[in-house]
């Protein structure tokens, strides 16, 4: 699903590289935790997959496409295959839950009846039945993150990227979000999740990739958060 070969990224001349010679392969259907201290390059990794940034060396391949060489007008097509979730939810405050999720479909020109059918299905999947008409500020943090996940997943993307999705949530709520992501992973969606949540990583026992100063220092199947703490 994702292949990085000797990928480097420096945010400017003379800057310490945010990623250095990263080589990594993530297969279809995998669940991967991306861990590492602050500033180690986790978000940079995700941004390269999305082509929000361009690598300064090496090749990035996502879903069989060479992302580095992708023409700018083809970038939207790439992003339609990828769902993204952030720590700060990124919802539209003046739209309801339903409209927030529907937005992702409308932008892609999906017909009205598809929107009317798909959105309630996804909202049920993430456990938000009956809250369609609420606005984001009328929801708890965990519920807002569920809306964001529903929006990321409503197009049934092959790949879901999550950048510290539980970063703003208390442990109990985080477990709920984690279970939801696990459930989505079981439908066949590849998930890459950057996180600082050590308990969660230790409990889930999934593949763990640890970055430090932009380099991969550990890559374990069924790993834990810290190897040498």
């Amino acid at each position: 699903m994702i292949t990085f070969e000797h990928v480097s990224k420096a945010y400017g001349e003379g800057h310490r590289p945010a990623l250095a010679e990263v080589t990594l392969q993530i297969d279809k259907g995998e669940f991967v935790f991306l861990v590492g201290p602050s500033g180690s390059g986790k978000s940079t990794f995700l941004r390269l997959v999305l082509k929000e940034e361009k690598s300064t060396g090496g090749t990035v391949e996502v879903a069989g496409r060479d992302v580095g060489r992708l023409r700018s007008w083809k970038v939207p097509a790439l992003r339609r295959q990828i769902g993204v979730v952030f720590q700060d939810f990124r919802l539209l405050h003046d739209k309801t839950v339903f409209e927030n999720v529907a937005f992702a479909l409308q932008v892609l020109g999906k017909p009205r009846h598809v929107v009317a059918q798909t959105v309630p299905e996804v909202l049920a999947l993430v456990g938000l039945e009956g809250k369609e008409k609420r606005r984001p500020h009328e929801l708890s943090g965990g519920e807002q993150q569920r809306v964001a996940i529903a929006r990321a997943f409503v197009n049934r993307p092959a790949l879901l990227l999550a950048d510290e999705p539980t970063g703003n949530l208390d442990p109990t709520t985080s477990v709920g979000i984690m279970k939801l992501l696990d459930r989505i992973n079981r439908t066949g969606t590849t998930i890459v999740m950057a996180t600082h949540d050590d308990d969660m990583v230790d409990q889930m026992r999934k593949r763990v990739v640890e970055l430090r100063d932009g380099r991969v220092v550990r890559d374990e199947d069924r790993g834990v958060y810290g190897s040498n703490r």
């Binding site: 999305l50 700018s72 007008w73 939207p76 097509a77 790439l78 992003r79 339609r80 295959q81 990828i82 993204v84 990124r90 539209l92 937005f103 992702a104 932008v107 892609l108 929006r151 197009n155």
Partner: peptide, 16 residues
């Protein structure tokens, strides 16, 4: 910019 960044994330074309 919030709307537009979300539109970019879900893969809206530049034209849209």
């Amino acid at each position: 910019r919030r709307e537009t960044s979300i539109m970019r994330l879900v893969g809206a074309s530049r034209l849209l």
